[in-house]
Amino acid sequence: MTLQFNDETFRGDYSYFNTEHAIKRLPFPFDRDEYVYSVNIEAHPGGPKGSPFEFRFDVDEHYVSEMKDRAITLDDDPLRCQSLPHMELAGWDLLEIIMVSKAEDYTDLFTLHRDGNRWHWINRPLGIEQRFTFLDPTTLPCGPMEYITRQTQGDFALLHERDGNLWMDAGMVTSQADWSLDFDIGMNFFEWHAPVPKAKQMGVFDKALKFLLAMQQGQSYRRLNWTMTVNPRLDTSPENYHKWGPEKRTITPENVGRKQHLRIELQSFWRLPRSNAIAFPIRCYLACLEDICTQPKWGRRLHRVLRDIDPTLAEYKGFAVNQDMIVNYLSQFDDGAPTSPGIFPDA
């Protein structure tokens, strides 16, 4: 199958859309009719053919437009991409793992030729061809992490391990659920997670850190997270809150199905071989309520999850102000029938 790339925007006229194919393969984040915190980690990659879990780095119909949107965000605010000086080797690790994976998993889209440290990279969807020397930053137009993440969907944090903790010492963050790399850079695992409600008391972070520190190369993992976003906007950053925050007030009972989006994060975790750092890609999938409700199981389930969610989490995820309208809208898709286990839609 050759992928067709959508011509669409994530700001302004918000022309973003999902084809039927994209909807059916969404990584719907709820495997039951309620939402509770859990360290819901499983091995990655691995999943049904065509699902976003099949390959190491999923490339979908939004690829080209997402990369254009990233470039706009970076032009406005270069601090969305930062790498502390000791993280360059981790950047090369990331570049290697992404180039090798994409060239193996999407042979029609990407090609990588390697002759020792002389590499030749072809990215057909973006029309890029680059010959460079691996580990020599002067042979690339920018640092290795920036170079490869300008060509890869999702945000990226590179975590340095030291003193029994992980430190967010590099990243490319332009499609985030209201957090700031410029604010978090240099923080440790507990510091950057401090705003998350309830989880600390539950001991979630101690367990998660212990798990991450024990992670070895060749064993990568994923988990799903989610939040709610009004309009299909990738850059919901604190820096631009004045642009997207007020849009929450534009929701009406008439437009909620089109405007209100479920924002799904497919997060994965990779131990990098050369630097011993950990790569943390956070891939964002957006789907409006109408899209979700084309799958009866998901419509029923999302209604139940958002109706019964802990009010603290509704506040933290930023949709408390519109919760009634959202739940009212979704209720028309919930006939009370039981839902099947797991995240995938019924055939």
Binding site: H86, E161, Q216, P273, S275
Partner: peptide, 13 residues
Amino acid sequence: ISVPTNLFALDPR
């Protein structure tokens, strides 16, 4: 043989 694990990495800072 296990895959390599590092508990004694250099601090690149």
